[in-house]
Nucleic acid binder design. Structure first.
Lengths: 232, 232
DNA sequence: TATTGCTTTATGTATAGACATTATATTAAT
DNA sequence: ATTAATATAATGTCTATACATAAAGCAATA
């Protein structure tokens, strides 16, 4: 029997009490058992509701110590990282990918370090453009570990972008991503149709399969690009 | 009785099967009941394990249709947004905040639009610097809705940054955040001790309490700044 | 051919009860 | 007074069971 209280409605209710100041930052909440009595539901339902709020950073929960409103409410921004083509098409634009260069070579020291490669492994080096409505908006430089992913050598990267080929064909176990800003150089400027020195948004991403690096990519966005998301 | 299988170990196991290609993208997984039999646990435990993977974007789950490995494995980057002082102090540096300007004034049209203000509401306008080890690294421009948050007029923003005061004193219900890159102007350059035209990482953030805007802030980071996180 | 409605099935949620885990609080021993 | 052992209390997890819900598939209908 539901007794009219789902864990979601309880979560919303508790959230309102926090936002509304009924429970102040640092304040101890009633125990799960007490809340279960108040909302007339099982303790597990309360647990489900509070767990989400703790994951979102609104609550601090500790065994024995209880649940309290977070004093430094850490918020999280959740950025959706998906295939670039899908982002473009969702905006109603036509996506196209252009391969600029594709060669097998040994990487620079900084790349070798970042990818944690021991020996002088040969990698696949790819430079390409992501184009929306015939206007290039991302310049991409990528290194792919062909020892680990030999199949990519057979892929026609003129047709499908390396980005998409990898996402579809290789599952990764972990990755790290970083965001920064850079003044674009003359070559990049010409490729993405901008002025040299303009500030560009850059995403650096390295993905791993267990302990082995699959790929490392640097994506230089056309000046004016903005990445948005909702907070918590 | 645990029978040696926690939901976490099951989740890890399933994740390995996905990453390892045992279950291919698009492939249908066994039902929860079947997995419960395989792992010798209750269905609820399987549900708990798979739910997390679905939230992470690795699985698609639909009632009646079942659970399948995501075809377009959308990954999420989770960025932790907390008080700037804490970030600095965690790096072992000394944090300081400096107030540059503080006045009550009516905002520009673009700010009024962004904050969804109807009339000619007077706001609090604050300009400040975040300083680590005596080196300024963020320039901040902020608009605060004093009609909604009158208490901030009593705060000594020389001592505590508006950032921290707001986080501590005002709970918000929602917010949006965006990241971009900009060429800094001469004024900003001097404040954060950089060269005019350098590419800076910018965070724009607007927070809301229900339908009313609390504050809107633009944070210009010193060139070289990089925001990192792990993927999924 | 389309539409409507029924049945089935897999996931979603709720419950009560048990035990696990981990800090805190208390007590005993040194 | 400090330290070590023990009790206690709150959240964390697991189980078994039941019912809710959404969507797929099928059948009956117009």
């Amino acid at each position: 029997m539901t007794s009219g209280h789902s864990w979601q409605s309880i979560q919303t209710d508790v959230r309102k009490r926090i936002v509304g100041g009924v429970w102040q930052p640092g304040e101890l909440l009633p125990t799960e058992e007490e809340l279960a009595a108040e909302f007339n539901c099982a303790r597990a339902t309360i647990n489900r509701a509070l767990r989400g709020l703790a994951e979102a950073g609104l609550l601090d929960r500790r065994r024995k110590a209880g649940t309290r409103v977070a004093v430094d409410p850490t918020r999280y921004a959740r950025l959706k990282i998906n295939i670039i083509r899908l982002d473009v098409e969702r905006r109603g634009e036509v996506y196209r990918h252009a391969l600029i260069e594709r060669k097998r070579t040994t990487p620079t020291d900084s790349i070798r370090t970042r990818m944690k490669l021991k020996n002088e492994t040969e990698l696949l080096y790819i430079r390409g453009l992501h184009i929306a409505d015939e206007s290039p908006f991302i310049y991409e430089e990528r290194w792919v570990n062909v020892t680990l992913i030999p199949k990519i050598l057979e892929a026609d990267l003129d047709v499908i972008s390396a980005n998409e080929w990898l996402v579809r064909n290789v599952q990764f176990s972990s990755g790290d991503i970083s965001f920064s800003a850079t003044n674009i150089d003359a070559i990049e400027a010409e490729l993405i149709n901008s002025r040299e020195g303009s500030a560009a948004f850059v995403i650096d991403r390295t993905t791993w399969q267990n302990e082995q690096c699959i790929t490392s990519v640097r994506m230089v966005h056309k000046p004016g690009f903005r990445m948005r998301t909702l907070l918590s």
